[in-house]
Amino acid sequence: MAAWQRHQAGGRRILIVSYHRVVGDFTGELQRSIPGLLISQETFRGHLEGLRAAGYEFATIGEALDVMAGKRAATKDLCVVTFDDGYRDVYRYAYPVLKQMGVPAITYLPAALIGTDQRFNHDRLFHLLGRAVARGYQPRFDVLPSAASELLDTVLSGRTRISAALDDFIGHHPTDTLLETIRVLEERLGAGPDLLPPQGDLMDWDEVRCMVKDGFEFGAHTLGHRVLTHEPLEVVEREVRESKAIIEREAGITVRDFAYCNGWYSDEVIRVLVRNGFRSAVTTEDMPNRIGGDPFTLKRKVLWENFSLGLGGEYSPSLTVCQLDDCFGMMGLRGPVPGRRPQRTEASAANVVMGPTGTPPEVAW
């Protein structure tokens, strides 16, 4: 399988893996967090060991780009480790493992949230919906905005798990609608300290600078985690330009790499990135990267804890290697979710908020 994949890729496999939160207590965190964002420190270490055992050489994003562009040849298959969102868990639990094993990595930061006490909108919504279910909340749908009514009805009816309902919701609605839904839910649930999730805190700039000193790289992930294909182009321009400027100022580095929120992109977004001096951008499309491929549509495999659990619930090295080598994809048992989307104007975004919705593919935050 590996030999065939190398042939298809143009000579060498270039695997880019993506993580969000590496945690110390997976079982405890699972009770209060979005499951698909979590991986235990032990399983994360197992992934890195499994990648080495499978013959991969860990590389920086720049080294991988050089191989893709034909600027240098690779003697082994390459693996690039990436993290989205800048969760503090990465500093606490992934950073020590990476240092110990000598593995390079890049973290994509939502620049305006780093160093603050804010939480991501998806974490806030997950937490608030969980509180609503726990309290047995019964909404008055006639006085709720349509988007909030739809989300609450889906969750409280028990038709869909909270994380799956959020996938659909975030896939349809721009950030302003998410913020309005959060406001409405907080208002209906009443004041109280339990309305802000205690988990999901982000790095501060001192932690970022500490990792920079050890040679770890950082890229941009918008200012506040906006799905750019949902936004008008003036918002896209600001999110790209200002996120780059903030990270460069605070971390003292040059930012040239970007991660699309949800993995979604458009030709218009790519043009904004090029205009602002970026050299690459990563998606969440689980497909092979090919020699000569587009550096602004880099493919990634998004991983979490359950990708490595065997039938008995234990860590399975064999299953992990099958996942990393995309055995199931090659057998046609799993297909990628495409990331290319139409760029929405302000008018069309408003239509999505107020009009009927279809069934979007699953989102990787």
Rank of each mutant, 00 (worst) to 15 (best):
R159I: 09
K213H: 10
A112Y: 02
I34E: 04
D167G: 14
M331Q: 11
G190E: 05
I247K: 00
L178S: 01
V184I: 12
N306T: 14
R131P: 00
L303I: 14
P338K: 08
D168R: 15
T320G: 09
M211E: 07
A112W: 01
H173N: 15
K71H: 07
G190C: 08
R188K: 15
G171V: 11
A220M: 08
F120G: 05
R238W: 06
V235Q: 04
P193T: 14
E285Q: 13
I16R: 03
T107P: 04
I14P: 00
S18T: 15
R159G: 14
Q199G: 08
K76H: 14
E29H: 12
A112R: 08
R279F: 12
G36V: 05
E248K: 04
I14R: 06
V240R: 02
L38D: 02
R88S: 10
A364T: 10
A364F: 11
V235W: 03
A9M: 01
R21G: 04
R159C: 09
T284K: 03
V269Q: 03
M1F: 12
H20D: 09
A147G: 13
S18V: 13
V272I: 14
E207W: 03
A64P: 00
E285C: 09
I170R: 12
L129Q: 04
V282T: 14
T177V: 13
D214G: 11
